[in-house]
Write a protein that binds this DNA or RNA. Structure first.
Length: 464
DNA sequence: ACAATGGTCC
DNA sequence: ACTCGGACCATTGTA
């Protein structure tokens, strides 16, 4: 017993000395009862819908199975990457690109490229997608319903991540599908009880807003201050100057170059990169350009290399690296911030979030370049991702406290990194909307506003 | 039981 | 030689 109290003394002293006492007591400790309440609340499922989906999917999978076997000529285990690899790359002699340690890679990105080469590829991709969703969510979730509560209760792990995020397990309710038709359908099976609604509040672009704050980059700050669509704004910034200066010829040239870059047909020199800098007006920002800008935005947050960007955008390596150079030209303080962050990591051995949460990166000084650069990417990402995590934790605490103070019946159900999901009785919908709209944006004061989108619906799939 | 592979989310 | 940050989990195949 003495040693336990001694340990407490020691750790408290240590935390105080390191400036982490506030984070520990006022955030992490206070968050515990909030998480407990969320776990106990649990989520409600439409089991009929899931059962029906399972049946339908089962039929579809049998059909796909038959298609795959007949186009290959025999049966095999489609779920085995090993067997699938042998079928595709030995029997069918499809062109192989990447290899894994033990054979051929059959991951989706590899097979995407083989679409059209052989009919079976399309079937396998479909099969993969359907069977993934069926076996991971549609069939599993109903089996996890608690007999007493009739609900599914996840476990939130507060100490599991390197950055300060929460994680969710048994089941993981932070990776419920959302993309694609089927993803939305699965979310529709997460419902509110009669007379109640689901309400979600999600931070809009919180990572990029945090980056704007941490880097103090004027361009990023201005974009958010004016509540611009940041991806479009980035596209405009990378490709254009002020709208009224753009001549028709400049526009046309830039447009051509932009599409050339996007389609990655040829390589471009520095001159072309310069051309990129005066080009299109806002209304000429195409979906493709916006998408590439978006990728770069996220890429910066993640510490993406030019290789990663190449993979993500189909730009050639050279184009990609120029694109990044151009980005840093347009957002110079971001560049500066990334450098000083890495420098801090090298000097102190750690980086930190807005609340002082630390991630230690001993490998930042490794002589192995691959190891070192991995640590550098972590050094860049951790303060951004971690600060976002800090902020939403504060929001959760404040919301929970206020809901309790007002004796609201609404329940906090889930946190999905930048989003909170609530179950709200009909008569509390308006009050909860206002409350979430008030508390989430004011959880932490950055140098740019925090924006929150609020949606309400009878299920998690169709919320407006 | 564990590693490898693949895939879902933010 | 390089393969984007953070998670969790299903399945296969080997130990």
């Amino acid at each position: 017993m003495d040693t336990v109290w001694g340990l407490k003394e020691h750790l408290e002293t240590e935390l105080r000395q390191q400036g982490l006492w506030h984070l520990f007591t006022d955030v992490e400790m206070v968050l515990i009862p909030v998480l407990v309440a969320m776990e106990r609340n649990g989520i409600l499922l439409d089991t009929d819908l899931l059962r029906e989906m399972s049946r339908e999917l089962g039929e579809q999978l049998v059909k796909l199975e038959r298609e795959i076997y007949s186009s290959v000529g025999h049966q095999f285990n489609i779920n085995s990457p090993q067997q699938l690899g042998r079928v595709l790359f030995e029997e069918l002699r499809l062109p192989q690109s990447r290899r894994t340690k033990s054979g051929y890679s059959t991951e989706a990105s590899v097979m995407e490229a083989l679409r059209g080469v052989h009919l079976v590829v399309e079937f396998v991709l479909q099969y993969r997608q359907l069977s993934k969703l069926k076996s991971t969510y549609i069939d599993v979730l109903p089996a996890l319903i608690n007999r007493k509560t009739g609900r599914v209760h996840t476990t939130f792990n507060q100490t599991g991540t390197a950055t300060g995020r929460l994680s969710s397990s048994d089941p993981n309710l932070q990776n419920i599908p959302i993309r694609g038709e089927l993803g939305g359908k699965i979310r529709r099976a997460i419902i509110a009880p009669p007379e109640a609604y689901l309400l979600s509040g999600d931070y809009s672009q919180i990572d990029l807003r945090v980056l704007a704050h941490l880097s103090q980059d004027p361009g990023l700050i201005a974009a958010f201050a004016q509540d611009e669509d940041i991806h479009s704004a980035t596209a405009c910034r990378l490709f254009g100057v002020s709208r009224d200066e753009v001549t028709p010829e400049m526009r046309r040239n830039a447009k051509t170059v932009n599409f050339g870059v996007i389609y990655g047909m040829s390589d471009y020199g520095l001159e072309q990169a310069t051309k990129l800098s005066r080009g299109v007006s806002r209304d000429e920002v195409t979906p493709e350009m916006r998408r590439n800008a978006k990728t770069v935005n996220f890429g910066v947050i993640y510490g993406m290399s030019d290789y990663g960007l190449e993979q993500a955008t189909k730009l050639s390596r050279e184009e990609a690296s120029q694109f990044i150079a151009l980005y840093f030209e347009k957002y110079p303080k971001v560049k500066e911030y990334l450098e000083t962050t890495k420098e801090q990591a090298r000097k102190l051995g750690y980086v930190q979030t807005v609340l002082g949460r630390r991630r230690f990166l001993p490998e930042i000084n490794s002589s192995n370049r691959v190891v070192r650069e991995a640590a550098e990417r972590m050094a860049i990402n951790a303060p951004v991702q971690g600060s976002s995590a800090d902020i939403i934790k504060i929001a959760m605490i404040n919301l929970h406290r206020e809901m309790e103070r007002r004796s609201l019946k609404s329940k906090m159900l889930l946190q999905i990194h930048d989003e909170l999901l609530f179950e709200v009785p009909e008569e509390e919908v308006e009050e909860m909307k206002s409350l979430v709209a008030e508390v989430m944006p004011s959880a932490f004061q950055l140098c740019v506003p925090l924006k929150v989108d609020i949606k309400v619906g009878r299920n998690w799939g169709e919320m407006a």
